[in-house]
Design a binder for these strands. Structure first.
Lengths: 190, 190
DNA sequence: GTGGTCATTGACCGGGTAGTCAACGTAGAG
DNA sequence: CTCTACGTTGACTACCCGGTCAATGACCAC
């Protein structure tokens, strides 16, 4: 028994990397303490030593997923554009990211729907809510002086982007962000 | 051993009803042969006698879900309306249905994301595809004579409706279909 | 009645799971 | 060098799962 020691951070990262790989390749159900331990080249007990429980491991894994896929939304360097152009640009960037990270986004949805308690949902909900927060300002600008209500537009945009994420998961190859963008451009208020 | 006999149909319905109830109340993971049998007041063996395997039971349950929630889309009695009014109306009806059946829709998504093989996904995909088929004709009519492309509009509408279904699941109480409809009306082409 | 068909039971099996723990190495402090 | 603190191991427990099956009863045709 016993074996070489590594710093906590390094071990945790290795375990999470193994869990991430298994989840991507075979889905959330395949993420068991044993399989993760084997994939990381350590014993099962060590997983619990570092993450206390399986839920602890999954929470950490969810954190990795959310940090890597949903938390880059920003319109800081777009301030010079007209509001509608900025909105279009933000949507475009987001749709491209959804295509790129569709496997990770699928895992996030798998987390969301695998449980009904708040353990995972609260975290995911917070990330989703950031969508609304990110789109709201520009939507209000776009709506100003039109018949459109800013908050209603923001709700619609969020629904559209999230629906697009489902399309991306359903069929990553055939999903075409350009179709949605083209429609938006065509209904652009004068 | 042995016990009162019931016709196959009646038994299957009772088992499915029990499974449905458990799934709604506690999620898909809670649907085990034992729990379903207990809830239906029968023995575990009988579940397998009637459905052969757990996957068989889940497939049947998914069928019940899809029949009850996604398969009523139709625009037959709306032919007299202008294309755009018809599209609005269809979206409205669908959004209201999503709110009403949000628990069942959530279960459908749980089915979708619980597995990555085609056992459940193919069935759900077929139902989702019917969305596109249902919206395509009216979208083409709406697009005729405008800068909008019919098929692109249809893809956008499907994404919007499916995104709205996620919003409904996230927060059934606060989700407001009217917000989306109002935005659509505001961007309605002349 | 009698025989046969079939729904029904529940104990049972093999297997995978989360989580525990006493024993054991290893490294660093004194 | 020794002692202590802690990372590490893997066998172990308790549990629940899907699935099987011989025994059993209910029902029907004759």
């Amino acid at each position: 028994m016993g074996g070489p020691k590594k710093p906590e951070q390094e071990r945790c990262d290795a375990i999470l990397a193994a869990a991430y790989e298994i989840a991507l390749a075979e889905g959330l159900d395949a993420v068991t303490a044993r399989r993760v331990a084997t994939a990381a080249g350590i014993s099962t007990g060590l997983v619990f030593f570092h993450f206390h429980s399986k839920d602890g491991l999954l929470e950490a894994l969810l954190g990795v997923l959310l940090d890597g896929t949903l938390d880059a939304l920003s319109d800081s360097d777009l301030a010079r554009l007209e509001p509608w152009d900025r909105l279009e640009r933000m949507i475009w960037v987001e749709l491209e990211r959804l295509v790129e990270y569709h496997a990770a986004v699928e895992l996030i949805f798998a987390f969301y729907f695998s449980r009904r308690d708040d353990l995972f949902r609260a975290r995911i909900e917070a990330s989703f809510a950031r969508y609304l927060a990110a789109f709201s300002p520009v939507c209000r600008e776009v709506a100003a002086g039109t018949r459109i209500q800013g908050d209603e537009l923001a709700a619609t945009v969020v629904a559209l982007v999230q629906g697009a994420s489902i399309q991306t998961i359903r069929n990553p190859e055939s999903f075409n962000p350009e179709a949605i963008l083209a429609t938006l451009r065509a209904v652009r208020p004068a």
